[in-house]
Amino acid sequence: MKKYILLLLLLPILAVAQTPEERGLEIAIEADKRDLGFSDSSSQLVMVLKNARGDMSVRKMLSKTLEVEGDGDKGLTIFNEPADVKGTAFLSFTHIQEADDQWLYLPALKRVKRISSKNKSGPFMGSEFAFEDLSSREVEKYTYLYIKDEQVDGEDAFVMEIRPTYKYSGYTRSIVWMSKEKYQPIKVEYYDRKNALLKTMRAMGFKKFLGKYWRAGEMLMVNHQTKKETHLTFSNYQFKSGLTLRDFDKNSLKRSR
């Protein structure tokens, strides 16, 4: 009994003794845990690209994700607009340890092309989102450093610095505001390879699905260096619709219309 009380007395001290790295990792693990078990999801995406002059162009696509236990998720993105890329599809198998596997389907030639996953830092469809901003977040792919608690538009958040551990990232680090309620990033600042502020992302319009999974309704990515921005909206979210590995294989690319 005495020992137990002693232990209880020690607990707050232990908590205080937690390093910022441990705290950051704890938050990341919690965020990952809360998102477990969604099986599969799909949503319609609309991207509006705006350059410094205010010219706009629109991209529409369908995105599907398959949860994979013990490895990174599988993703399939099917493009619908602009019309010249209709039917183009992008398949990716993310991995925790090794480089991701990626294939691109070119409908005019009916060609499935394995592509290098070194393009992580590259713009997604000419937008301000890079491939790595949109791919599945695996805990092991970053190191974490908890900084402080702070509000974003009245919403309580943990502020963390995360650094990618995978090869070919376009960022040295990013600062993430992780909502305490949703355990989803509501704001991210990205620092380029020269450690200069590159972009800021804001995620808004969150909804809870299946009573558990928070998903953003829109994201705004602003590039501070080029003054370009991309507004991304998500609609028609679906979970657990029974997608299987067969919906994420090379053959599935060819029927992605």
């Binding site: 290098s116 070194k118 393009n119 830092s121 590259g122 713009p123 070919y168 376009g170 380029d192």
Partner: peptide, 12 residues
């Protein structure tokens, strides 16, 4: 062989 992001640009 692909040079990704030539000169820190978006160009491959």
């Amino acid at each position: 062989y692909t040079f990704v992001g030539v000169n820190d640009s978006a160009v491959d």
